[in-house]
Design a binder for these strands. Structure first.
Lengths: 329, 329
DNA sequence: CCGGACGCTGAAAGCGCTTTTTTCAAGCAT
DNA sequence: ATGCTTGAAAAAAGCGCTTTCAGCGTCCGG
């Protein structure tokens, strides 16, 4: 059932049906009524493909994320989807797992389908801007990168000041009287680097200069947190505070500390990052840095929408995280 | 840059370019080489829209979920996306939040865009099959419903036997010596009903007939779990085992029990459901029912793909969950 | 040496819309 | 009564592909 069928049944031309459907141009009330009656009793669904063919935008947004199962990305993607949906867009999603090839494959696919805009969620995607295979696709539609910088003509960023976030955690621990702090780096991203930098700087600010030696590397998981603590305790170094790069890792840190007979926060205070549900499930509930994924997502959507509609001026923005104090520190 | 530009530069017709691009029909090596050279030095991207217009499938799958932020749905959606991506499809996502209007709006949009198939993730979507507004769209493309039944021509289900899952939890608790069991129902879905039914049946099987009176209603959250326990303890009824409908609720149950001075699992054993990361973060780690979202997703993808390619025969399937024993029971 | 088959390529139609252009008729002023 | 204007609706073009069909040259067998 297409527009020709409707036109034939209503005894008008397809352009008239189109005018009725899109509510534009002049149509007499009588003609409009006749078309609408036919429309009502048919189950006609206009083809967005054909509409796209005729030059109208398809109103779809491509969202690239590392892994939607990570709560932080889920929250970001959720808000992006909801907000674009509210604005009449549909969102298409890809979990690249950080695989460059996967990102390129997907970017090609959405370019072929004429996506109206692209949102990259995760600092890892900043690489794509300088990737000769990926960059051409990123020029075909406006791009917004959540949590990372990208240098391309029609691309902007919404950044979170993770350096500041880590510094907030350090300051809080110090205010509690902690002096022997460590920082757990559980992933190799720009964002993790920023946290470490914030940690080191905050220590320097307090007159402690060996911050760089107080960074523990491990994996982003409960087991990762546990291992980091085991290694730390085995080293015999004194510790009374640990800043973690992720709540899930922090929960492993807490678990290992308790297993070693240490009390949290009395003996060792621990902070998480992302203020996820894990922070509330963990016992004791984690003090965590809220980096506001919903706010970031909202800003991404607003920015991308104005980019699509070319209602500038545009600019990248940076937001500040906040510390949420609970029981672990 | 379109196929006409390529054809002109290569000095051939567009049909020849099309043949080269799609690797079909006969083209001499010389002609093919000439076209490919032009192709290589251009940044031509074929239009999937135009290809769709010409009758080819666009290879997009629509996925409806309640809320991607719920880990169980995130795991399901993730696997669906990855598997379809691997098969050359793109997935579009909508979080309906259980809103009928939102589902309908989205179904209309994807129908207009000629989605090749639809996956409904969550038992709540079984309503759509009998919804006069939604059903027409569900007839336009094959549909697979994860975790619920739907009665429509081209629709099939992948079910999890949640009755059995709850029964597994009951049996485990009884084997530990628990006798005064309760079940926490934290949401009003078909799936939650099945769990309660499994709970009641399993009790009956053990000679306990008042299972129906042992169901506690609350919200699906940490607070929900806490409230259920507070109400239960206030009632003065004896309890030594609690079966929960979700890990997150179970974590609240554990927290409230401990706050009341009860030991888990020694005084009261607790089981969760979904075997999510929450079960591992919780202290003590939750014994939980694994309802295998990845397996369900894989089966959905396989089923939907064969539906799309009409390589039958098709049939709905039911899978059995398994109990994962940890420290809480 | 000619007819038919076959391989390669181009021409053209068609997919379902939007939009521009054209047609037509009615209404009005001169 | 003629010419103009105006508004409604039809006609037609165009979007970028795929695919069918037709044309044309070549090769082979009779």
């Amino acid at each position: 059932m297409n527009i020709y069928d409707i036109a034939r049944e209503a005894g008008v031309s397809i352009s008239t049906v189109s005018r009725v459907l899109n509510n534009k141009g002049n149509v007499t009330a009588a003609t409009r009524a006749r078309v609408e009656r036919v429309l009502a009793r048919s189950n006609y669904t206009p083809s967005a493909i054909a509409r796209g063919m005729a030059g109208k935008p398809l109103r779809t947004i491509a969202v690239l994320t590392v892994d939607i199962r990570v709560p932080h990305y889920a929250r970001t993607a959720y808000t992006i989807e909801r907000e674009f949906s509210r604005r009449g867009y549909e969102v298409s999603l890809c979990n690249t797992g950080g695989e460059r090839a996967e990102a390129i494959r997907y970017l090609r696919a959405v370019t072929e389908k004429h996506a109206d805009g692209i949102v990259l969620v995760g600092s890892i995607f900043n690489q794509l801007g300088s990737d000769p295979q990926a960059a051409p696709f990123l020029r075909e539609a406006p791009v917004v990168l959540a949590n990372g910088r990208i240098d391309l003509p029609n691309s902007y960023s919404v950044l979170v000041d993770d350096r500041h976030g880590a510094a907030l955690a350090v300051e809080h621990l110090m205010a509690r009287g902690c002096r022997d702090l460590f920082c757990v780096r559980d992933v190799a991203t720009e964002s993790a680097e920023a946290k470490c930098e914030g940690f080191v700087r905050a220590l320097e600010h307090a007159g402690i200069s060996d911050g760089q030696d107080r960074i523990l590397d491990t994996g982003q998981s409960i087991a990762g947190g546990e291992e980091a603590v085991k290694a730390l305790l085995a080293s015999g170094r004194r510790v009374d505070g640990i800043v973690c790069g992720e709540d899930i890792t922090a929960s492993g840190v807490v678990r290992a500390l308790r297993a070693a007979g240490l009390r949290v926060p009395q003996d060792v205070a621990v902070t998480g990052y992302n203020d996820s549900e894990y922070a509330r499930v963990c016992d004791p509930a984690l003090t965590s840095v809220d980096n506001k994924p919903e706010l970031v997502a909202m800003l991404c959507v607003q920015l991308l929408e104005s980019l699509i509609e070319k209602t500038g001026p545009f600019s990248s923005v940076t937001i500040q995280p906040e510390l949420v104090v609970r029981d672990s520190a």
